[in-house]
Simulated assay, not measured.
Amino acid sequence: MNHIILGNSLTDWLIALAVAVAVAAGLDAVKAILLRRIRSLTAQRASRARGVAVAALSSTRLVVLAILGLYAGASLLALPERGQLFAGRAAMAALLVQCAIWGDHGVKSWLASPRAQQAEDPGRATSSAAIGFLVRVLLWAVVALMILDNLGVNITTLVASLGIGGIAVALAVQSILGDLFASLSIVLDKPFVIGDFIIVDNALGTVEHIGLKTTRVRSLGGEQIVFSNAALLKSRIHNLRRMEARRVVFKLAVNHDTPEPVLRALPGLVEAIVSEQPQVRFDRAHFNGMTAPAFSYEVVYFVESADYRVFMDVQQEIYLRIVSMLAEQGVRLALPAQTIHLEGRPAVLPVPLPQDERVAA
């Protein structure tokens, strides 16, 4: 027991080891008690903050607790200055890493709820995914700089060097950074979210994924269309999911032999047919043209639904009823044809051929 090892007796080493084990075990016991207490409160009344606390505490690493225990034990020993400095820096580095792990798991847990609600609000899931990634990257970057500073590295020079290197890298990857900032614009401004049906130039489909560089759209044909985020924001985007009402305009052309009283009555008859349809708001119907082949009408109404199937069902029913109404009124739809009348020209009678020519023919 009186043996001296590195300036400390064997008894001192055993005491230090016992203190290290006791501290590590004590910290682990405190973690278990806190977890049990928070989980019991969460079971009684669910809370998002308590869920985050449970996720963070559950990520506590036993090796970190052991390093903190060893530091507590080492503080009881008469160690050289370099040994004490090493123990202090190791304990601080372990504690910083553990704080980063707590923060990482806490952010993941906090964002888990919006992702679970993706069907109700896809925009929140999209925003939380991108913002959560940036928060976690920033957290680990700050912790890494703090650890380097704790180890005695001059981080001022390092940060300045990283700034210069960052400018060079930024110039080299302008397109990637452009897509990254475009992704942030999509997340924050929300011109569309996952699940929206959009039209971009000649491509149309449902948004499946919004990434840091690309956005993926599933077209009606089944193939996946991949857009660069920067190029996508430069395009004109039609978001059909946010359509509150669909404006419908169609023309009706009737034959020139339709009598004037029927022509005058047609707008009212068409209005009655359109107004009878559910989820439809009639706007107007007018006799608006006397072209060469027909008399034409223009009819405008609104379908109070963004569902394309509802729009097609309404349009089909209106067309069928108009056809039936025209048949009852004895009105014929105009055909794309023209009739040419020749006046003041003598009739041309066929001239019979001689007998021999008829035989030859």
Results as ranks from 00 to 15, higher is better:
177 L>A: 10
26 G>Y: 12
355 Q>W: 10
308 Y>H: 15
90 A>R: 08
143 V>W: 04
185 S>R: 15
220 L>W: 09
321 R>H: 10
94 A>L: 05
159 V>K: 04
260 E>P: 00
263 L>G: 03
116 A>S: 13
359 V>E: 15
240 L>C: 04
301 Y>V: 07
32 A>T: 06
313 D>M: 13
289 G>P: 04
187 V>E: 05
223 E>L: 06
59 S>R: 07
10 L>S: 04
178 G>K: 06
290 M>K: 13
257 D>G: 03
301 Y>C: 05
249 V>R: 13
281 R>T: 09
269 L>P: 00
156 T>R: 10
358 R>V: 11
238 H>N: 10
338 Q>A: 14
181 F>W: 15
161 S>R: 11
137 V>Y: 08
43 A>W: 10
26 G>I: 08
232 L>F: 13
78 A>V: 05
16 A>M: 02
77 L>R: 12
151 L>W: 06
123 G>D: 12
48 R>F: 04
288 N>P: 00
8 N>V: 03
320 L>C: 00
43 A>H: 10
73 G>C: 01
34 L>S: 11
334 A>R: 06
319 Y>M: 01
71 Y>K: 07
301 Y>F: 15
306 A>N: 14
286 H>R: 13
128 S>Y: 12
201 D>F: 00
145 L>E: 05
299 V>S: 04
109 S>V: 04
153 V>E: 13
71 Y>P: 00
342 L>Y: 14
44 Q>F: 11
353 L>W: 08
215 T>N: 09
130 A>G: 08
325 M>E: 15
13 W>K: 01
87 A>Y: 02
149 D>F: 13
58 S>Q: 14
119 A>H: 13
70 L>G: 07
140 W>T: 07
138 L>E: 09
18 A>C: 05
341 H>Y: 14
95 L>W: 15
37 R>F: 04
185 S>H: 09
314 V>A: 05
225 I>S: 02
277 Q>D: 00
138 L>Q: 09
82 R>G: 00
288 N>E: 15
321 R>T: 01
346 P>E: 14
93 A>S: 14
56 A>P: 03
73 G>H: 05
239 N>F: 10
106 G>P: 01
217 V>H: 07
128 S>V: 14
191 P>W: 12
68 L>V: 14
232 L>W: 08
43 A>D: 14
299 V>T: 14
332 R>V: 12
308 Y>E: 08
40 S>D: 12
81 E>I: 02
185 S>F: 09
332 R>F: 03
166 G>Q: 10
179 D>L: 03
245 A>M: 10
137 V>N: 15
253 A>I: 00
293 P>W: 11
135 V>H: 07
65 L>N: 08
221 G>W: 14
12 D>L: 00
74 A>F: 10
51 G>T: 09
45 R>T: 14
237 I>C: 05
345 R>N: 05
121 D>Y: 09
211 G>F: 02
26 G>H: 09
66 A>C: 11
346 P>G: 02
34 L>Q: 11
65 L>Q: 06
218 R>M: 13
111 L>P: 01
76 L>M: 08
5 I>Y: 13
239 N>A: 03
78 A>H: 07
